[in-house]
Nucleic acid binder design. Sequence first.
DNA 1: ATGGTAGCCTTGCTA
Length: 257
Amino acid sequence: MVKVATWNVNSIKARLGHVLDWLETAKPDLLCLQEIKCPATDFPTLELTSAGYHAEILGQRAYNGVAILSREPARDVLRGLPGGDGDEQARYLEATVAGVRVAAIYLPNGNPVGTDKYDYKLAWMARLARHARTLIDSEQVCVLAGDFNVVPTDDDVYDPVAWRDDALCRPETRAQFRRLLHMGFIDAFRVLHAEPHRYSFWDYQQGRWLRDQGLRIDHLLLSPQAADRLVAVDIDREPRGCDKASDHTPVWCELAL
DNA sequence: ATGGTAGCCTTGCTA
């Protein structure tokens, strides 16, 4: 069995204790991190190595940054999403671990709509779709894991009307996300959970966590070969309730490999 | 209409 997880930690330095606690209790074989918010030189590799995990890092000062933690060392590491000539933002890291080709994804937020930020989001999603096609064609066990900054349907947000014009919910955003589904990637959570209003992110403001007013934007997209092996998947809400929590909580799945 | 929170690192940006 291989357990794969994703977690936007909103600064690895601020969240190191939470991450170490979660690794110890959840024991994932693979954990994709987003928003580590530091260069690789500042990443707490030593502490994570002591906890039994290797770390592959694509860092960036202050913003963004992704990493892959794994019990087995990673092979064939790809740093950055192909096709991004001159793209400085650290948002994509891909590697093979324990028979799984995994991608740690921090997809651009895109707000406000109507600015270059939204254009960048849609262009980034088009690039992701092009690269995802090559992953599908490779017929590997593959998991796209990360903060997609996409609310797939109105069942995945507490107030769809209020969020209708947000970059995370816009029809163009959802259509780009569905391109990944149409080419054969499967939303792991929805394979085993039909219930609406299950969230992976709650804003720090306005008591969103206390009122369970969140969004489901952290996803595990499985290639057909991975989906065939899916035995369990869930969102672990517990870390979101801790003191000094990230605004996101881990999503995990188990593959029978 | 505004500001509410958090992290980074400034005097604002990103989310």
